[in-house]
Amino acid sequence: MTTPVEKARALYAARATRTPIPPFTDAEPRLGMADGYAIQQELTALLVADGDRIVGHKVGLTAAPMQQALGIDTPDYGPVLASTVYRDGDVVPLERFIAPKVEAEIVFVLGERLEGPGVTVTRARAAMAGVVAGMEIIDSRIADWRIKLADTVADLASNGAMATSSRIIPVGELDTRLIGMTLTRNGELVDTGAGAAALGDPVAVVAWLANTLGEQGVALEPGHLILTGALHAAVPLSPGDVFRAEFDRLGPVTVRVA
């Protein structure tokens, strides 16, 4: 058995060297969600000590099939670090990652501080500056994505990088459940989805996150980006790929893989 700090250091080294490590749950099958978050906190502290900073949060496992696959009934979350944020159209170097996959997601930009508990969907909507088209590159520092819940939670919820469109659309009267999405790779349709794939409504994801973080006295801050979870099955990427996620009412976001 190793301590959360030691496990965080192992993940930190895996990130730095792009060398995956075996799942923690192989040696310690009883590790659970709380253990995962304890490790995540230590790892985040190590990365922030290096000069990175938290610019938002990602929520994962928001789709029912993903939750069933891991045998849970709740999403998970992790920090979004400034060093992992790309702009629309940017080239993303593959060598940053170990086993990356891409996901199209609806991303909110917080306008006001939002602190749980007691955050309703209505309150969450009112706190948004707006919504943007997003793409997340997920990655696993755990070998071959052989993750159990504690492993992925510890590993910053398998976050790798993200890109968003730059036009912030006011949430206003948008029905975020019904925002349609197409994902293309090199111009070919890969998958489609709609907002409701994320916990029934992407705004509900933000409310869930605010309430969950609120239990630890952590608030969502103005300007924070909130990634609300994949609307389709994640797609592996290869050098030269151009991925484009187009969202109804939000527009497109493009990532080029080098």
């Binding site: 029912a64 349609g180 197409t182 349709l189 489609t192 989805g193 709609a194 409701a196 794939a197 029934g200």
Partner: peptide, 9 residues
């Protein structure tokens, strides 16, 4: 319960 989502494409 949401069982699936898609877009027209």
């Amino acid at each position: 319960r949401v069982v699936a989502t898609a877009s027209g494409a």
